[in-house]
């Protein structure tokens, strides 16, 4: 368990760093896919098996692929030079490190209460019940949001001719 956590965490952070450092957008996209797999592994460790499946389906299968398509459709100049940093590189790095320092300090000094006892054996059943009974309206709203997003994407993205 412990080694698996460190393995997934290492893959996740290394791949994510590679994604933002690489100057080749295709490499970035592929590295990002790998990091998403690692996230799914972390979910499994956290006993959120349904979420792990959704992560792979949606992020790796849909969003990452969509981004790769986007990269290919907006080709401009050399692909090796397609992901250059802008002039805020230094201050962006500083901000990110500063933010991490603050967050890490907060996490380190926070004493979390002890967890209660008990395990949900079937998370997928609980999720299904929650969605279809307790949070039905919110669930439907999410569906409508996605529908509108699809329509909007088609409307914006289609050829104006």
């Amino acid at each position: 368990m412990i080694s698996l956590f460190y393995l997934f965490s290492a893959i996740l952070l290394v791949f994510a760093l590679g994604t933002v450092i690489s100057t080749n957008l295709i490499h970035s996209a592929l590295l990002m896919m790998g990091s998403f797999f690692a996230v799914a592994g972390l979910y499994l460790l956290l006993q959120a098996d349904y979420l792990a499946m959704v992560q792979i389906l949606v992020y790796v299968g849909a969003i990452a692929i969509l981004l790769v398509f986007g990269v290919m459709l907006t080709r401009k100049g050399s692909i090796e030079e397609s992901n250059l940093p802008n002039r805020y590189k230094g201050i962006g790095l500083l901000t990110a490190l500063g933010l991490f320092g603050l967050l890490a300090r907060s996490i380190y000094y926070t004493r979390f209460p002890a967890p209660p006892i008990g395990h949900p054996t079937q998370s997928i059943l609980a999720i299904a019940q929650a969605f279809l009974l307790q949070y039905f309206v919110a669930f439907e709203a999410l569906g409508i949001l996605l529908l509108i997003a699809i329509l909007g994407a088609i409307l914006i993205g289609r050829d104006s001719k």
């Binding site: 397609s82 790095l93 990110a96 933010l99 991490f100 967050l103």
Partner: peptide
């Protein structure tokens, strides 16, 4: 991971990045 994302958002030229 969040801070890596922040760095990406702040410093990348390409909108997809």
């Amino acid at each position: 991971l969040f801070c890596i994302g922040v760095y990406g958002v702040l410093t990348k030229k390409n909108a997809i990045a």
